[in-house]
């Protein structure tokens, strides 16, 4: 369960000025729920995501995930928290272009020094699910857009996260790939994962598997 309590986030701009990105936000996301945050760019959707993933700390208020006050964690522990709980799907994939598909998917697991047999099985499973078996050793920059997207999703899932966060996942995709992504997303809904999507893509607006849609405007929930 994810909980944002009275969260305000300000960003410093320059020496003195600051921008209020979020104003007194309260949000609950249940286990297994799929939530869509929608609103124009700059409305504060991404900020909410980064607070949940503890990439950022709220100026006021707190963020609690599975009973853990992640907004209070020191930098090192936020990383550990993400490693164990969060799967990230970024806008523009954010893969490392000069590594192979396989190496990209391994990246989140490297610090925990996994057992290599286990890892091999896990990779086989993931690459099969996303029909990428033949592309494992191919450098990411030589893959097609669709393939890159699937690699990015595979990377998000490799650590069996309980929370999947997708930030504008279709912003850089054409219609066909966007629909493909939505198909994959649908399959990910299994009752264990909470999925939080931030997007202003109308394709998401009337999908029945999305449990809740939340409108964000100027840093406030409408």
């Amino acid at each position: 369960m994810i909980e944002l309590k009275n969260v305000t986030k300000e960003f410093k701009v320059g020496a003195k000025d600051k921008v209020v990105a979020l104003k007194d936000i309260n949000l609950h996301v249940q286990k297994g729920e799929i939530v869509l945050l929608k609103g124009p760019s700059g409305s504060g959707k991404s900020t909410i995501l980064s607070l949940i993933a503890a990439l950022n700390k709220p100026t006021i208020g707190e963020v609690i995930v599975d009973g853990k006050r992640v907004s209070k964690l020191a930098d090192n522990f936020t990383s550990l928290f993400r490693r164990e709980n969060i799967g990230f799907i970024f806008q523009r994939y954010n893969l490392i272009p000069s590594l192979s598909a396989k190496e990209n998917v391994i990246v989140p697991l490297i610090p925990s020094n996994p057992d290599s047999n286990w890892l091999e099985d896990r990779l086989q499973e993931l690459f099969q699910n996303f029909s990428l078996e033949s592309k494992m050793e191919v450098m990411v920059k030589n893959l097609s857009g669709g393939e890159q997207q699937r690699v990015a999703i595979a990377r998000a899932l490799v650590n069996n996260p309980s929370i999947i966060i997708a930030d504008e996942p279709t912003a850089n995709l054409d219609k066909k790939l966007s629909l493909e992504f939505i198909e994959i997303l649908k399959k990910l809904k299994n009752g264990h994962n909470s999925i939080i999507i931030a997007s202003h893509d109308p394709l998401f607006f009337d999908l029945d598997f999305i449990d809740r849609q939340i409108d964000i405007h100027n840093g406030e929930i409408l």
């Binding site: 930098d75 090192n76 990383s79 550990l80 993400r82 490693r83 970024f90 990377r155």
Partner: peptide
């Protein structure tokens, strides 16, 4: 790249 690594769970120590 560092941003990606940290986002997917690498600590400063890693």
């Amino acid at each position: 790249e560092i941003g990606i690594l940290k986002a997917v769970g690498w600590t400063i120590d890693d």
